[in-house]
Write a protein that binds this DNA or RNA. Structure first.
Lengths: 153, 153
DNA sequence: TATTCGTGTATATTAATTATCTATGGATAT
DNA sequence: ATATCCATAGATAATTAATATACACGAATA
């Protein structure tokens, strides 16, 4: 069970935007070349972040992407769900239906319980992600070094 | 981020074995046909469960698979890890290295923090799975109906 | 009016999952 | 003994999702 690479890529981009002075917009080709992915692929990921209200896109000369909200209002769950969607880790019951077809109804309820437990575990995972924001990540970086960074150069 | 089908298949098989009277061994071809997968594929999954010490294989006429331990000693985490292994949801840092190469060391530590948070969330997920056993699932099934089931028929 | 994002489509590559078939060898109950 | 069934392994295939690129036209704006 692996998390999409795009989630990590997104988080790194957000860190980059977060340390950009004055939240000045940074161009696609600069960010994508830093990530070493094509601008085309990069924009597909950024689109998801934009739709989720995490970044703002500015179409203009001197345009680019910037953060849409303060750092402490962007949780890791926001980013995760923006990229991965809200699908559950498991989505089935079809299997249970196949197996217990013809046998006791009460056994079928056992698999329903399985789904409930996995859903419960999934919620625990997501709650942890919701507990942390980009600001928490940035708090591990020294103030001085942040002021010195301009990704547009 | 999706859980392997094999995890759900395994749980269903364990439920079937759990309600089998006297923990009598059930043959591969019976279980695999119930799951509607080939016996060959089914055995590959069962092998993982056997290596994890969850089921016992009996090679003999009147052989088959049975549970290796009491129901309450088989957690959902045991099953999950038997099938999915112990890989983390995210495994990288390579990306961080690529991006922050040439820029400040302190920024790199931001991505380390990201990995730590995701690992934390993953542990929360796994802890929930460890909190439940096959016995918990079975507790949702009436005693009477369990006594009536013989999967070997 | 040049620059840059927005959107959409088509396509390619890679990797993992899911799955089957076959075949040889080993354990054991009767 | 021998039939039955698991153990292991290798080759192969289908399906799906993730990852990725290229291209083209439209829209916003400094």
């Amino acid at each position: 069970m692996k998390m999409s690479q795009a989630v990590e890529q997104s988080l790194v981009v957000l860190i980059m935007l977060a340390v950009q002075q004055d939240n000045a917009p940074v161009k696609s080709h600069i960010l994508s070349s830093r990530l070493e992915v094509s601008e085309s692929y990069f924009k597909k990921t950024m689109r998801k972040l934009r739709i989720a209200g995490i970044v703002t896109a500015i179409a203009s000369k001197e345009g680019g992407f910037k953060l849409a909200r303060p750092l402490h209002q962007i949780t890791l769950l926001d980013v995760y769900e923006a990229i991965e969607g809200e699908d559950s880790f498991i989505h089935s019951t079809q299997l249970a239906d196949r197996i217990f077809k013809g046998s006791d109804e009460l056994v079928k309820s056992g698999t329903k319980e399985v789904l409930a437990i996995i859903y419960d575990a999934e919620q625990a995972f997501k709650q942890k992600l919701a507990d942390y924001t980009i600001a928490d990540i940035l708090s591990h970086i020294g103030e001085e070094s942040i002021e010195a960074i301009d990704w547009r150069e």
